[in-house]
Amino acid sequence: GREWTEQETLLLLEALEMYKDDWNKVSEHVGSRTQDECILHFLR
């Protein structure tokens, strides 16, 4: 997939603090990424 922007990464980190590993909520918060993309990015 395409590179994550700084904004997307910030949203991901913010969402992780709020929702922990509720990836459905996390991906909704990021908006432009799927659950799978969020998980894969997080694991890097």
Rank of each mutant, 00 (worst) to 15 (best):
S32Q: 11
Q35W: 05
D21K: 15
S27P: 05
H29S: 04
E3S: 15
K25E: 08
C38K: 09
G31T: 09
L10S: 13
N24Y: 09
N24H: 11
E14D: 07
D36N: 06
E28S: 06
V30C: 05
S27V: 11
A15Q: 01
E14P: 00
D22Q: 08
Y19C: 12
E28N: 06
L12D: 06
E28M: 00
E28Y: 04
W4Q: 15
L10I: 10
K20E: 09
I39H: 15
E17V: 03
V30Y: 00
L16Y: 15
R33N: 00
E8F: 01
E3T: 14
E37T: 01
C38L: 03
E37L: 00
A15K: 00
L11D: 07
T9D: 09
M18Y: 08
V30P: 02
V26I: 09
D36T: 10
D21H: 12
W4E: 11
W23P: 03
I39F: 10
T9Y: 10
Q35F: 10
E37A: 05
H29K: 05
L40C: 13
L13R: 13
H41N: 12
I39L: 13
Q35S: 12
E8Q: 08
K20R: 06
S27A: 13
L40V: 12
L13G: 12
C38V: 04
K20Y: 04
Y19P: 00
R2A: 14
H41L: 06
T9K: 13
H41D: 02
S32M: 09
R2H: 09
E6R: 08
E17G: 06
L13A: 14
D36L: 04
E37V: 00
S32P: 03
L40G: 11
R2F: 14
L11A: 08
D36V: 04
L43G: 15
F42P: 15
E17H: 04
Y19N: 07
Q7D: 05
S32C: 08
S27N: 06
R33Y: 01
K25F: 06
R33T: 03
D36W: 05
E6T: 08
E14H: 05
C38S: 02
L10N: 06
K20D: 09
L16K: 15
F42V: 08
N24P: 11
E3N: 13
Y19D: 06
S27Q: 14
R2Y: 10
A15G: 11
D36S: 11
T5Y: 08
E17T: 07
K20T: 08
L16P: 01
T34A: 13
S32F: 05
K25P: 04
Y19E: 06
Q35L: 09
E8V: 00
L13S: 06
A15T: 02
I39G: 10
L16Q: 15
E14T: 07
V30M: 10
I39W: 05
T5M: 13
W4L: 05
D22K: 14
L40A: 14
L43P: 15
M18F: 08
Y19T: 05
E6L: 06
Q7P: 04
L12I: 06
M18G: 06
G1W: 05
T5C: 08
H29A: 03
V26T: 11
L16S: 12
H29M: 06
K25R: 12
T9I: 14
D22H: 06
E14C: 01
H41Y: 13
E28C: 07
G31W: 03
E17P: 11
I39P: 04
W23D: 04
D36I: 04
V26M: 10
K20C: 04
W4T: 08
G1N: 14
L11W: 06
L16E: 14
D36R: 10
S27F: 03
Y19V: 01
L10E: 12
G31Y: 03
E8Y: 00
E17Q: 10
I39A: 13
D21E: 14
E28F: 01
T9Q: 15
S32H: 08
S27L: 04
R2M: 15
E14I: 00
C38P: 01
W4R: 09
K20V: 08
L11M: 13
F42M: 07
W4P: 00
G31L: 03
T34G: 11
E8G: 00
D22I: 01
D36M: 04
L11S: 11
E3K: 12
E3I: 13
T5V: 03
G1L: 09
C38T: 04
E8R: 00
E8D: 01
E8W: 00
Q35V: 10
D21N: 14
L12V: 05
S32T: 14
M18S: 07
L10M: 06
E17A: 09
N24D: 11
L40I: 08
R2E: 13
R2N: 14
K25C: 09
S27Y: 05
N24C: 11
E17K: 13
M18Q: 12
K20G: 07
K20W: 01
L43T: 15
V26R: 03
L43Y: 13
T34E: 15
V30D: 00
L16F: 06
Y19H: 12
C38W: 01
T34V: 08
E14L: 02
T9W: 02
Q7I: 15
T34P: 06
W4Y: 06
R2L: 01
E6G: 07
E28A: 03
G1Y: 14
W23G: 02
L43W: 12
M18R: 13
V26W: 03
T9C: 10
I39Y: 13
L10Y: 04
L40D: 15
L10G: 14
D21Q: 12
E28L: 05
E14S: 05
Q35D: 11
S32I: 08
L11G: 07
Q7L: 02
G1R: 04
E6M: 12
C38Q: 03
T5R: 06
E6F: 05
T34F: 01
L12W: 05
W4D: 07
D36P: 09
T9H: 10
L40F: 09
E3V: 15
T9V: 09
E14A: 11
